[in-house]
Nucleic acid binder design. Structure first.
Ligand code: MN
Ligand code: MN
Ligand code: MN
Ligand code: MN
Lengths: 217, 217
DNA sequence: TTATTATTTTAGTCTTACCTAAATTTTTTA
DNA sequence: TAAAAAATTTAGGTAAGACTAAAATAATAA
């Protein structure tokens, strides 16, 4: 069984890999909030255990074994978020942090029970896909709200769950998954957007819009 | 925050203390399945942090601080067992082991949510009291079934939850919490008991009877 | 294309929580 | 009540996973 640290490394390497581009030591160090030298140590260990390939000075890439392990943890994380939200009625800005701990100690039996109680959900409360047991993940085709064009209408598919303050803010303006938004105007000066939710118009900053993912409608 | 190891030490020191008698290094070592020398190390550390008092070569005793910490963990453990049993429908022989891990990572918020969802239970699925938040514990007055007298009737109040096989066996003979038992006969040779549950008579070994706690009725 | 800067790795430590073997203290037995 | 046995502590180590500082390598700028 991989340790909690190993699981966290694998998960974050997977996340960074998904974003595209090389997964470098410094990127990982920033993501995990661990010194670069420590990351190098661990990377060498994980490489020895065939979880990933390491080209010194270049970066890392998960092997199939590493990818599978990462997806197992991500599945547990997202199922647990769903459970916290649906069954224990936690707010959607609270669940990510709780899930960060539970993902490491959930047995497979617990994973199955929760999956069943929830009715085998495919998507977590932030719109992220829940990887299947066989290692399949549905990719969600969405683009950042910040790229939406003036005059179009979009639907919210996903919100970055790593920042509770973003999630609180997003809720507070009445925005949630599957809501439709009208893109009224883009402010040149700071790239903020004037959007319409239901009958209300409001302005949303570029930073917030970069973390909200939508599809054209 | 105490580490997982520290929490386990405190919890098991509390358990041993409850049984009466001195809590010695060797007792703790056996309980925790850790070498005696390692226990001495940790005991010195915990003593330095005022979780307990240590008389070298004599044993340890929790301070009020230590007792409080122990009860917090035990509360989480038993609430979690309740939750696994009531909400996720785990069998009563499975829940103790799962709870051993979760007790260490449950936040206070999670503890409160679960308490609420369960309707503020006082007793766990094995009949053990759930300590209150203020550090109060209801003592359950019960004696081992192995001490019951021939010809009496008793009610099951508690079953030792540390051994899954015992729990499976206990269920399989139709025995559960609050069931009434007639004590028909004690076999001198091996101290086994002939008991009556409902209309069925059966024999139960002395070892099993020592782990089932009852009251006279 | 060389010099400067940034990134990555290596070397050497630290802490936690364990271990075994040896020394010390307490308890039991003769 | 002294010797033997058992329990406990001390001494010396290990492994995991972190750290800082220094050395090596790669990327960028002059
Ligand atoms: Mn999350
Ligand atoms: Mn999520
Ligand atoms: Mn238990
Ligand atoms: Mn229990």
């Amino acid at each position: 069984m991989p340790s909690i640290s190993v699981e966290d490394y694998l998960k974050h390497i997977y996340y960074l890999g998904e974003k595209g581009g090389a997964v470098t030591t410094s990127l990982l160090a920033a993501e995990l909030k661990i010194a670069a030298a420590s990351v190098t140590d661990m990377v060498k260990k994980l490489s020895g255990q065939k979880y990933l390939r390491h080209s010194p000075y270049r970066g890392v890439q998960l092997t199939e074994k590493g990818r599978r392990s990462a997806l197992k943890i991500i599945r547990k994380h997202r199922l647990w978020e769903m459970f916290l939200s649906e069954v224990l009625h936690f707010r959607w800005d609270e669940i990510h942090e709780e899930a960060e701990k539970f993902e490491h100690i959930m047995s497979e039996k617990m994973e199955d029970k929760i999956d069943e109680v929830l009715g085998f959900p495919r998507v977590d409360p932030h719109g992220d896909p829940i990887p299947a047991k066989d290692g399949t993940v549905k990719t969600i085709v969405a683009f950042p709200l910040s790229n939406a064009e003036e005059g179009t209408t979009v639907r919210v598919l996903r919100v970055n769950d790593a920042n509770p303050e973003l999630l609180q803010y997003v809720s507070s303006i009445g925005l949630s998954l599957n809501k439709k938004l009208g893109i009224k105007q883009r402010i040149k000066f700071d790239n903020s957007l004037v959007i319409k939710i239901g009958s209300k118009e409001m302005t949303i900053s570029s930073l917030a819009a970069e973390n909200i993912f939508v599809e054209s409608v």
